[in-house]
Deep mutational scan, measured.
Amino acid sequence: EDPKKEILLAMLMVDKEKKGYVMASDLRSKLTSLGEKLTHKEVDDLFREADIEPNGKVKYDEFIHKITL
């Protein structure tokens, strides 16, 4: 499956209130437990690539855009 789609799906599952962003810690939890599970190192690399703080907010569109360039 398309990794971009899988990450967006994980974000939507976490963002039940439809705020347009999720906490990095919640996204990490989903990405390491769903679908093609990522390792913590892979998530760290994704966050670093997208300039996301480990305890920060992750906005869908910015995150998807940064990791798919």
Rank of each mutant, 00 (worst) to 15 (best):
M11K: 13
K4E: 10
T68M: 09
I67W: 12
E49K: 06
K41I: 01
K66D: 00
H40G: 09
K19R: 11
R48D: 10
L34F: 04
E1T: 06
L46K: 07
P54K: 08
Y60F: 08
V43I: 11
K18A: 10
K4V: 13
T32C: 06
P3H: 12
K41C: 03
I7S: 14
I52C: 04
S29Q: 13
L69S: 14
L9D: 14
K41T: 09
S25R: 10
F63H: 04
D51I: 02
L69Q: 15
V22G: 02
E17M: 04
R28Y: 06
E1A: 06
T68C: 13
P54Q: 07
L46V: 08
K41G: 08
S25V: 00
D2E: 03
E42D: 10
S33Q: 13
E17G: 12
P54T: 05
L8M: 10
D2I: 15
K37F: 14
I7Y: 07
H65Y: 01
D45M: 06
D15W: 13
K59Y: 12
P3A: 01
T39V: 01
M23P: 11
L8D: 10
L46N: 03
K41E: 13
H40E: 15
V22R: 02
L38R: 04
V14I: 13
V14G: 14
N55H: 08
T32L: 13
L38A: 03
R28F: 01
K19V: 04
S25K: 13
K41H: 06
D26E: 14
L8H: 06
D15C: 13
D44L: 00
I52S: 02
A50D: 02
I7R: 15
G35C: 12
F63D: 11
I67Q: 09
K37P: 14
K66F: 12
L38G: 04
T68R: 14
K57V: 13
I7M: 13
L38F: 15
K59W: 08
G35S: 12
G20R: 04
H40I: 10
L38E: 01
E42M: 04
L38M: 14
M13D: 15
D61R: 08
K66M: 09
F63R: 01
S25Y: 00
K59N: 01
T39A: 04
S25P: 09
S29E: 14
K4L: 13
D15I: 11
K37T: 11
G56N: 03
G35F: 11
G56S: 12
L38S: 03
